[in-house]
Design a protein around this nucleic acid. Structure first.
Length: 621
RNA sequence: GCCCCCGUAGCUCAGCCAGGAAGAGCGCGGGCCUUCGGAGCCCGUGGCCGCGGGUUCAAAUCCCGCCGGGGGCGCCA
């Protein structure tokens, strides 16, 4: 247990006991603990208005009575202000413990047991990773780290969605082109992305012509022109192969059917292509230091029979209806109670879920049911977190309902859709289908270029290139992870590449600066430190002591942005301190060791906190 | 049309879940380059917390309605 948490717990327990003795029923008192608005009012306070009313006492009077016998180790004063009871921490007495804790390697970690699967990124293997995937990936990676730090066993998984229509369109185009592999020297996912959007556009165009839909025809002709301007050779290679003479939609459906049935030739084509796209994904992920523990093929779930077992079970339970040749599950009357359990909005109408198409093939959500079981069962997970865009809220709800009705009630309740909003770019409508996207690779190149420019000639790092990569990746990660997931992000270069405060580079710089002081001033020795002089650095010490609680709350609420906000405040306070006080040059030995210990503790917290966000903290920059 | 999310300083956002004296960054104006790393520091500027009701001793925070922005309502994912 960390000092500050301990003091807080005792404070709550004592006040609780006092209230009980007076006849009140203090439930959830710890929620009323707050930091007073001004430091001179104390370090922690509890508001008592609620209980004053319950007991028929004046708030101030109640606070006074409770304060009288409040005795907590590490607390030097109890203040009664209005209806609050506030405590003043005796920082001289607890500074040593704060610093001992903060200098330890695993500072901020907890040991709350639990097993969690985090599925993230899971991009369609048809084009390179773009800014939207980046948000998904960085959120997922950070959540995994935050939960591990909380004490949970975490497994991260990437779902390879190789059975969707989009992969089929890509493979179809490639087969028409007569080549499955990318040209030498071109990053595979980028090349496939071009082929995909050109194929998709030609297919859409052909269909529009066949339907006689003039409007759509015009629209897709424009897209084609745009693509021709960007990638003439790809358009040239496909233009005469995908024309309105053929019903391509049907051929693509046929291709999907053959893949689902496990046709060897088709299987080989799909697998080769997908593997190669994934090769590109892995390269990008290596660049940003994100790893996943397991890669799961959607197709394996079909071939292994897991998906048909689900359908059989649904049939046996009488959950399926035949509707125009398709098998569907309906959710007409979902009780309020079930909605509450599965976190489904009250007024939401839930359309039927098609599990099997009329041609006998299955759909994404069908396979996702099988996949969810696999995730829970293989890892014996208590919880599964799916990091998936909020636009997929409805299918995720249908998934939970399907699980519930199939009898997997625990899983349905413990399946969490961690929804995040879109990343938009001003003046640009992103669309993979139309080949319009800002890729993560490009973003990283650009960020690295800018960092290199900035660092040029003034870096103190031994390996400037490594630092450039860490800072570039960090700045993008920070932009994605420091905004709460439920807010849309408008991606602007001037914000992401602003390396001033409130950015990863600022935190990294502050960390490197602290390390620089330690190189000059030497290692702190707590046995030589004058803790009786800690009062002056109380603000910093308390902030250091708050880190574990911040990490805990971030884990409990799945809120990486809390870490970002906290680290920023810590860095601000440290920089103020740095300009005010000499550390390495401090002549008073005891004081120097105290300050060095504070600096080292801050460096440690910054490093650990950045790690929770998936951001590296170089020693020098 | 129905449903979900968001709306806090000129801009980008914390704070809202668990009600208890409005916060950062950017921008803008002014200062700090002989002292441990200027990606920094100091001073100043800036808000009927979208609007209207309600609950409460107390509302940015909870409830209802409206307005504005985004997303969803496919045998796509």
């Amino acid at each position: 247990m960390y000092v500050l948490s301990e003091i807080k717990e005792k404070f709550v327990a004592e006040v609780e006991r006092g209230l009980e003795e007076l006849g009140a029923e203090p439930r959830g008192l710890e929620r009323l603990v707050a930091k007073p608005p001004r430091p001179e009012m104390g370090d922690l306070g509890i508001s008592l208005f609620k209980y004053a009313k319950e007991l028929g006492l004046k708030p101030h009077e109640l606070a006074g009575r409770l304060a009288e016998r409040l005795k907590i180790e590490g607390v030097k004063e109890v203040k009664v202000i209005g209806g609050y009871i506030n405590i003043v921490i005796d920082i001289n007495a607890v500074a040593r413990r704060i610093l001992e804790e903060a200098l330890a390697e695993g500072y901020g970690s907890w040991s709350f047991s639990g097993r969690v699967v985090v599925e993230h990124t899971s991009a369609n293997p048809i084009h390179p990773l773009h800014v939207g995937h980046a948000r998904n990936m960085f959120l997922g990676d950070s959540l995994a780290r935050i939960l591990r730090n909380y004490g949970h066993e975490v497994q991260t998984r990437f779902y390879i969605n190789d059975m969707g229509r989009q992969v089929a369109i890509l493979v179809y185009g490639l087969l028409k082109m007569g080549r499955l592999l990318p040209p030498e020297g071109e990053k595979p996912d980028h090349w496939y992305g071009k082929v995909y959007s050109v194929s998709n556009t030609l297919v859409e165009l052909a269909s529009a012509v066949r339907r006689g839909d003039e409007e759509a025809k015009k629209e897709w002709e424009e897209v084609l022109k745009e693509l021709e301007g960007k990638w003439p050779e790809v358009v040239r290679a496909l233009k005469d192969k995908i024309t309105p003479e053929t019903d391509h939609e049907k051929e693509i459906s046929n291709l999907m059917k053959r893949y689902e049935e496990g046709d060897e030739e088709v299987k080989k084509a799909f697998r080769t292509v997908t593997e190669n796209v994934l090769r590109g994904f892995r390269e990008t992920m290596r660049r940003v230091g994100v790893e996943v523990d397991k890669w799961d093929w959607e197709s394996d779930l079909v071939w292994s029979g897991d998906v048909s077992k689900i359908i059989e079970l649904a049939k046996r339970k009488g959950l399926l209806k035949v509707k125009e040749g398709a098998l569907v599950m309906e959710f007409d009357e979902v009780s309020d109670e079930l909605r509450r359990l599965l976190r489904i909005p009250k007024g939401l109408e839930i359309p039927p879920l098609v599990l099997v198409r009329s041609d006998g093939t299955t759909l994404y959500t069908t396979r996702d049911i099988a996949y969810t079981l696999k995730k829970f069962e293989e890892f014996k997970a208590d919880k599964v977190i799916n990091v998936i865009a909020s636009e997929q809220r409805l299918p995720q709800i249908q998934l939970r309902l399907a699980l519930w009705y199939l009898g997997f009630k625990e899983y349905a309740q413990n399946l969490i859709h961690y929804a995040y909003e879109m990343v938009s770019i001003p003046g640009m409508k992103m669309s993979g289908r139309r080949g319009r996207m800002v890729t993560l690779d490009w973003l990283l190149d650009e960020a690295e270029r800018r960092v290199r420019e900035l660092v040029e000639g003034r870096s103190e790092a031994e390996e400037p290139e490594r630092v450039i990569k860490a800072v570039a990746a960090g700045s993008i990660k920070y932009a994605m992870v420091s905004v709460s997931a439920q807010k849309p992000i408008t991606f602007r270069w001037e914000d992401v590449l602003n390396f001033e405060r409130n950015s990863a580079p600022y935190l990294q710089y502050t960390h490197a600066r602290a390390k620089g002081i330690l190189r000059k001033g030497g290692e702190p020795d707590l046995n030589k430190a004058s803790f009786e002089k800690a009062e002056k650095y109380k603000h910093l010490l308390i902030m250091i002591a708050e880190f574990p609680e911040v990490a805990k709350r971030a884990a409990e609420g799945l809120e990486p942005e809390r870490i970002a906000v906290y680290l920023n405040q810590l860095a601000d306070s440290f920089n103020e301190f740095y300009h005010r006080e000499p550390v390495a040059k401090e002549e008073d030995e005891g004081l120097r060791h105290l300050k060095l210990a504070i600096v080292k503790a801050i460096a440690n917290v910054l490093r650990r906190g950045l790690w929770l966000l998936g951001i590296e903290a170089p020693e020098r920059m």
